[in-house]
Amino acid sequence: MNPLLKVTGLTRMYGARVGCKDVSFELWPGEVMGIVGESGSGKTTLLSCLSARLEPTSGTVAYDTREDGLTDIYAMGEPRRRMLMRTDWGIVHQNPRDGLRMGVSAGANVGERLMAVGARHYGSIRAQADEWLRKVEIDGERIDDLPLTFSGGMLQRLQIARNLVTHPRLVFMDEPTGGLDVSVQARLLDLLRRLVTDLGLAAIVVTHDLAVARLLAHRLMVMRRGEVVESGLTDQVLDDPHHPYTQLLVSSVLQP
């Protein structure tokens, strides 16, 4: 069996400054990887490089495509990469407004990916949109409402539905619970955990919230100043941190 994603020596520089440096790991199908670290540690840069949105300075990102096995995503052509991004991958943005079309209805938002890969039957697009809205616990009656009228938590769930409608194998999430209040966070995490298990999704979740990482991630990478300082199983990293920075990070979590 091949890993789903194989990253080797990934480095992204912003001029002389380091975005992320020499990151290597493998992600296996169905596995959820968490990336934690403080603000400015290079988490989002790394995620952008992994999800084909930001070309790395050096290093490779290889994805296990359905046709050709492991392929460098930056070596394949743009059409192919776009196709991959809208069929095999999902990208959940921190701010749902970045990932949604705010000017069109919820149904159209979910249906967009289907239409982009060639669905041309209105009835079936709408039926699938309806089904996915219900899966993310949005009332079917709101299918024709604009996202502008949705709450923050609903927007985030809508964004997730929009990404999952084409049954991706790999989902990138950037702070999926950022900006939500605690009870909404808990429900969203519940939902994400259920979807990930039910659909056998692999996911890379960037977060600064260790509780989110503990709930969702199987494995964890801790980043600091663009470098991965520690990685391992989530429970292991969080319960027995080795690196001084990880120890600091774990000990700074407030206990209510």
């Binding site: 776009r82 069109v104 209805s105 159209a108 249906g111 990916r113 041309r120 209105y122 024709d144």
Partner: peptide
């Protein structure tokens, strides 16, 4: 360039929905 025209159908979808 990529004949990436799915977005146009989003507009037509929106018409029918409304």
């Amino acid at each position: 360039a990529l004949a990436d025209y799915g977005a146009m159908h989003v507009k037509l979808y929106e018409d029918i929905a409304r």
